[in-house]
Amino acid sequence: MDLREVLLEKRSDILSMWSNMIMDQYPPDAAVFYKTEKDRFLNPLGYIVNEGLESIYDWLLGEGKNEDFRYATDRIMRVMAVQDISPSKAISLVFMLKKILKEAVKGDSTKGILDEELNGLYEKIDEIALVLFDMYMGCREDIHRIRMGEMRKQNHRMMKNIDVLNKRKGL
């Protein structure tokens, strides 16, 4: 059994452990809700995070499609970018996976899983972190852009009309 098989076998355990770790960063009352409410419309945050974790995990193991990976991780970062957390904390969610993986394969080391294999995954995780960081910054930029755009939209027509008026008057 190689590392990949072990990790695929333990997929759901690892994912739920990972998801719980992230949810536990919320106040306990919210955490319970985010963890237990399965209706994706009533619990969008929980749904988005879980969906994102799944696709990161699958992508890491070479299972998922790039497109899904981008979509789902972008959604997670969008959630994180408007929460009360610092960028480093937002990105740290992917590093949690390292520790969980280490823990998960500990018992299986006898099966011949090499540290190198694990290290390979770790490197990939670091790459993901960089991707997430870019996404996070992209989200923050989005927010600033939207904020600016919105100020204009509030009186968008006024401004446009004034422009037209000025042009007519030859200004």
């Binding site: 960063q25 957390i85 904390k89 949690m96």
Partner: peptide, 18 residues
């Protein structure tokens, strides 16, 4: 080896008030 639960400590983002 830290247990996952212990790791929570360094990612304690939002103050938890009972």
């Amino acid at each position: 080896m830290e247990k996952p639960d212990e790791l929570k400590k360094d990612i304690d983002l939002i103050p938890k008030k009972e």
